[in-house]
């Protein structure tokens, strides 16, 4: 390492600059929503909020806190995320382990049946009709059950057990007269926190952000998860404001409604996104590993 080449130094300078610009592009919109949510709405709308919050105001959050439908939706989403993640984790981790063992009878055949569904599925209507015929509409099971088995996550779990758990400890347990089920729960699972963390993260994020299934299967407002209410606040309220404009209310009232709607939007984005933003950096080393394990086998 005798002195850096000048070419290498210019390479580093260009590289750091380009990467920094990209990161700025990625983070700025998120940062902007955060500062807009605590700024004066008029300053935000006239384009004066760029780097720092202008005219500190929490009225967006106060408005949001006073809306019961948001709280109900938040609770529903937490229930969906907790129950859905627990179910998925149980199914994929147990199944993934069974499939990782060469002693499983008909293992190859079952894998084929599983992989097939990754490429071919019934699609929207047949799934909807099935859920409807099972009388699950307007229950959380309609949203959770059709996506509880994730073949992709199960193959990630399978690949993990194959590559990261030494065969020796499993065989030793078997020789000691430990059945496969006990071996799994008392020997294999305790040494596999990484795969549990990966699957928990993947699934919590999926459930937290899921929107379409809830829109199709849940029609009663009291069962709406957060994303459905967010859709009304973020995407549809413009239409509501425009409707009002069309029916000829006076312009001041319309302006005020638009101002309020705008305020609530920033606050709604922040409170719905913060939980995921806070969790993921702590799980980073696990999900990077999970993606690698999944990619090696996929």
């Amino acid at each position: 390492m005798a002195g850096k080449k000048s070419e290498d130094i210019s390479f580093d300078v260009v590289n750091v600059t380009v990467v920094s610009l990209l990161i700025l592009m990625i983070l700025y919109p998120l940062y902007w929503v955060l500062i807009a949510s605590i700024s004066e709405p008029n300053a935000v709308n006239s384009g004066n909020v760029l780097v720092w919050p202008v005219g500190f105001s929490l009225s967006g959050y106060q408005k949001l806190a006073a809306t019961p439908s948001i709280w109900r939706a938040y609770r529903n989403t937490v229930v969906f995320a907790v129950v859905g993640t627990a179910l998925n984790l149980f199914v994929t981790i147990c199944g993934g382990y069974a499939l990782s063992r060469p002693q499983l009878p008909f293992r190859g055949l079952i894998m084929k049946f599983l992989i097939f569904t990754m490429f071919f599925n019934g699609g929207l209507i047949p799934t909807y009709l099935l859920v409807k015929n099972l009388n699950l509409l307007n229950t959380m099971w309609a949203v959770l059950l059709p996506t509880t088995l994730s073949v992709y996550n199960m193959t990630v779990a399978r690949a993990f057990f194959q590559s990261s758990v030494p065969d020796g400890i499993i065989e030793a347990a078997n020789i000691d007269g430990c059945g496969n089920i006990r071996t799994f729960f008392s020997i294999v699972l305790p040494v596999s926190p990484a795969i549990v963390s990966v699957l928990v993260l993947f699934h919590v994020v999926f459930r937290w952000n899921e929107f379409f299934a809830a829109m199709i299967y849940i029609t009663k407002p009291e069962g709406f998860p957060l994303q459905l209410v967010l859709r009304e606040v973020l995407v549809s309220s413009q239409a509501a404001a425009q409707n009002l404009a069309g029916s000829g209310g006076d312009s001041k009232a319309i302006m005020e409604i638009q101002r309020q709607a705008q305020l609530i939007k920033y606050a709604a984005i922040v409170i719905s996104t913060i939980p995921m933003m806070v969790i993921y950096p702590f799980m980073q080393k696990y999900f990077v590993k999970g993606i690698m394990v999944g990619a090696l086998k996929g």
């Binding site: 199944g95 088995l149 199960m154």
Partner: peptide, 25 residues
């Protein structure tokens, strides 16, 4: 090891009902 199927049963039931059910549909 047939007892491994006890671990696989939840996944198999979901596979048959919610993956192959809609395929039949």
């Amino acid at each position: 090891a047939w007892d491994l199927y006890i671990l696989l049963i939840p996944a198999l039931i979901l596979l048959i009902v919610f993956s192959y059910g809609p395929l039949y549909g």
